[in-house]
């Protein structure tokens, strides 16, 4: 009786609810250690209900109580409960399934203009490289980084060039080659092209165009020696997938750059965030394609030596990528 009379309003407020808060504390601890999925139905339901009650308690306490310890406690408890209740509730398997079946091809279709721009940059670059090489082979040394050609240049004899295309070098296949390739020039280009897109598109376009020039000059060298179809076959095995990956990465970068340049009605930050939704999926697709290209270069190119087979393999895989992008994720209506 005396206790009741002594207690002030905010102390009474606290003593009436303290038990509920303790229970929520225990539930939050369980949810944090075991995960919401592993809790019983009643517990999960109680957690949600108690979270809403403690939110109300916090709002009231801020109005009626001057007890700093109580306010801090409620603040922390509400935050912990909030982080538990609003946790992502998605299963990993469903996530991967959704990416492959729906979201990736849909994102590709939504941003087809940017991807097409990426291909255009690469294509124009290749054309320029090819024409320049035909005009004067000296251009080759201007464009080609010395590490890239493996000594293949205008100085090499035709026989040497041919041996590169059709020689199964055992030390250049398998896991080592796969790993070496993945960290080679083109992967770095793809990452740069995507990342640099944020800086107003220009670096991404330039880099893709330059990469096209390198490819064009390289093809030009072989066409000049009458090895046109052979190099086409050699490149097709992995190149269709790999160069497409660079173009798609460029498309993703361009999308980010376009959001910075033309944010429309949004703020630039907001526009960047919105563009990021599709751009990141493009980057993931490009990464996947690069891994496949590395597998093809590490293993398949040495196993398949026939020119026609190489062409068929490379373009067949290219066609299946295209089919995935075009037909994937179209819901049955």
């Amino acid at each position: 009786m005396l206790q009741q009379r002594v207690m002030i309003r905010s102390a009474r407020f606290r003593s009436e609810r303290e038990e509920d808060w303790r229970r929520l504390e225990a539930l939050v601890a369980r949810a944090e250690t075991q995960g919401l999925q592993n809790m019983a139905f009643t517990e999960a339901r109680d957690l949600a209900a108690a979270y809403r009650r403690v939110t109300t308690s916090l709002a009231i306490a801020r109005e009626i109580s001057l007890d700093r310890a109580l306010l801090d406690y409620l603040e922390a408890l509400t935050a912990r409960a909030y982080l538990c209740v609003h946790a992502p509730q998605e299963r990993l398997g469903g996530l991967i399934h959704r990416f492959f079946v729906r979201s990736a091809p849909q994102a590709m279709r939504r941003s087809w203009k940017f991807v097409a721009l990426g291909f255009l940059c690469m294509g124009l670059g290749a054309l320029a490289g090819f024409l320049l090489f035909i005009e004067s082979p000296a251009w080759y040394y201007v464009f080609m980084p010395p590490s890239l050609g493996d000594g293949r240049g205008p100085d090499a004899s035709t026989a040497e060039l041919r041996s590169y295309i059709y020689d199964a070098m055992p030390d250049r296949s398998g896991l080592g080659a796969f790993a070496t390739f993945l960290f080679s020039h083109n992967t770095r280009i793809a990452i740069f092209v995507f990342g640099l897109g944020v800086f107003a598109c220009a670096p991404a376009i330039l880099l893709t165009f330059y990469n096209g020039i390198v490819v064009g000059a390289f093809v030009g060298l072989h066409v000049d020696r009458g090895l046109g179809w052979d190099i086409a076959g050699w490149l097709s095995v992995h190149g269709v997938t790999e160069l497409s990956a660079i173009c798609i990465a460029c498309g993703g970068g361009l999308q980010l750059g376009a959001a910075v340049l033309f944010p429309g009605d949004h703020s630039r930050r907001e526009a960047l965030r919105l563009a990021g939704r599709d751009a990141v999926k493009l980057a993931l697709v490009a990464a996947l394609m690069l891994v496949v290209a590395a597998l093809l270069e590490g293993f398949a190119r040495q196993l398949v030596q026939d020119r026609t087979m190489r062409l068929a393999l490379g373009w067949g895989i290219g066609a299946s990528w295209l089919a995935w992008f075009i037909f994937g994720g179209r819901g049955r209506v």
């Binding site: 002594v6 905010s10 102390a11 310890a69 982080l83 960047l272």
Partner: peptide
């Protein structure tokens, strides 16, 4: 960082709920 800006996230300190006794009670 840039990834946070794009993803719309930031990083916080996890608060620790510790309930001290009420000083206003006898």
């Amino acid at each position: 960082r840039l990834g946070d800006l794009l993803a719309g996230t930031h990083v916080i300190h996890l608060p620790q709920p510790i309930l001290m006794p009420d000083l206003a009670r006898a």
